[in-house]
Design a protein around this nucleic acid. Structure first.
Lengths: 138, 138
DNA sequence: TTCCTAATTTATAATGATTCTAAAGTAGAG
DNA sequence: CTCTACTTTAGAATCATTATAAATTAGGAA
């Protein structure tokens, strides 16, 4: 379990105790080649499918919020009743497929450089997110 | 009330019966010089403040959804527990001020032209929305 | 190791926006 | 004026998320 060690370190270094639950969630989120998008519900389902021991929904919410706080996850701006998260924390944008409610990455070279020319006095830009909604042709 | 006549026509021509409630909402939303952003809660508050006769929350939801369906309103993509609407239906983008949870328009000339270079086979682009999150400097 | 304390997990309740329901009211064509 | 389909409405239901408060656990100190 050398991977666990990495996650334990990651958690410790962010001031989070490496609990069984958090390590389990780390493995599910970060121990893979490609990044992906998920909702809390998705994550809960995956967790119950993969691990034998149940992790409480409240813990999942707590952990995901902590990870977001620490910058290990990004929350995607979409108006849905559910919140979408992304394990890809690099600067990028999204397609949102309205037919199957799925997010698809749009990396920087897929989108021309965006230049915001307006400024709001006293306000600092925290993020620039582009959401391209798509649906079937018909 | 020549304005009412305009709204009655607008409603009729979209297959919506011009009820007292819908006209009241039309006046509040569209009888003004500048467009604006609102949540259902905002609208409900304004309505109770302005009109004497109470309009049910369910009616407000129904009406706003109908107006959105007809293209008289836009729903803004933001991940908040509340849904934000915009009476400005032209193509434009937004700042979202995280301090006071307020939307501010970014018109086309405030944002360099966005070019989406990636295509998804069989999918058509429905909208391109840019959300620039801002907050106080500190 | 054993204790101790603060951090964490957990089940469950609470919240809050939105949607549903089904009964009462209304617009408007004939 | 009547009739019917469309609307409104209050209140219940839903569903994601957050709060609560008791039980558990991590990990440093003794």
């Amino acid at each position: 379990m050398s991977n666990n060690t990495i996650f334990i370190e990651k958690l410790r270094s962010s001031g989070l105790r490496p609990t069984r639950q958090r390590i389990e969630i780390c493995k599910l989120l970060f121990d893979r080649k490609d990044t992906f998008h998920f909702t809390i519900n998705d994550l809960n389902n995956s967790l119950t499918r993969i691990t034998n021991e149940k992790i409480s929904l409240a813990t999942i919410y707590n952990t995901i919020h902590a990870f977001k706080e620490k910058g290990y996850l990004k929350e995607i701006s979409i108006n849905s009743n559910k919140t979408y998260f992304d394990t890809n924390i690099s600067n990028h944008h999204h397609f949102f497929d309205e037919d199957n409610k799925e997010l698809i990455d749009l990396n920087d070279k897929d989108v021309g450089k965006v230049k915001i020319k307006k400024i709001l006095p006293g306000k600092k830009i925290k993020s620039v997110e582009i959401l391209v909604k798509v649906a079937n042709n018909n």
